[in-house]
Design a protein around this nucleic acid. Structure first.
Lengths: 139, 139
DNA sequence: GTGTGTGCAAATCTTTTGCATTTTC
DNA sequence: GAAAATGCAAAAGATTTGCACACAC
């Protein structure tokens, strides 16, 4: 068995979840297509019910087998840089508070160098940091 | 008139859009609550129809009066770091291609220093860069 | 065999659209 | 008064839930 599948089996088993045909198919399809949207995943697995896919994705995320990557379609809204300085956010995963912070020094340069390296023309960037705010750390 | 409202009026006027009661109310509410979700915005402006709010948000974004900030609820899916090295993404806004790149050197340190400064405990971060990939630049 | 997982159908929530009416300039 | 913007109602799309049956262990 290849190492990816053996990690997959191991994580499910050690957390007492069954290894089912559907879970394997979904995981394999994600491996194949990643990064993939839920829409594409559902459409490429017509033989599996949507609700099973949703439930399975939730499970895989809980088990940290997969992760979501933001592509900017679900969001909160704030005023643009016409009104306020460019900045980034901490997102507290406990109290859901969003804390602004200034563009850190060095980030622009870092992105500039990176984009150059990959021959990419950068127009915007976002840096989001998740974790615990100072209040929520003390419990 | 305060400077924020005068920028607001100016941007609408110079782009030949009317200044309506609804647009003002929506903009003021965003200023007040930002960062705010569409759900909260709709619920705090019951007197305005949902569809007007959706259309207005699209307009404000087009005019760059407001912006969306990703908070990680709409997404693509990829395998977690159990299977692959931590990395980030370029997102090409033209061909929608996603290009992976390695964790850039210096970013971890930058985040570490930042989090310290704000007394925040960071567990994850994401850096997404939007722009044009090398193919799409040549048109 | 037992309990977990899946499929199905329906419900709920989110976003979009067409069109008649109202408002802005 | 003409064009743009809004409200309403309905459609379309995305996600969740309850329950009966099927499958993994």
């Amino acid at each position: 068995m290849n190492p990816i599948n053996s990690i997959f089996d191991g994580v499910l088993k050690s957390n007492k979840y069954s290894i089912t045909k559907q879970r394997k198919l979904i995981f394999d399809k994600i491996s194949e297509l990643a990064p993939v949207s839920l829409f594409d995943l559902i459409n490429s697995l017509k033989e599996i019910d949507r609700s099973t896919i949703y439930r399975t994705i939730d499970l895989f995320i809980k088990l940290r087998l997969i992760k979501k990557i933001d592509i900017g379609f679900k969001y909160n809204i704030e005023l643009s840089e016409l009104f306020s300085k460019h900045h980034h956010h901490f997102y507290c995963s406990k109290c859901h508070q969003i804390i602004d912070f200034d563009e850190p020094s060095g980030l622009e340069e870092l992105i500039y160098n990176l984009a150059n390296k990959y021959n990419f023309k950068s127009s915007e960037h976002s840096l989001e940091i998740n974790g615990l705010c100072s209040n929520c750390q003390q419990v």
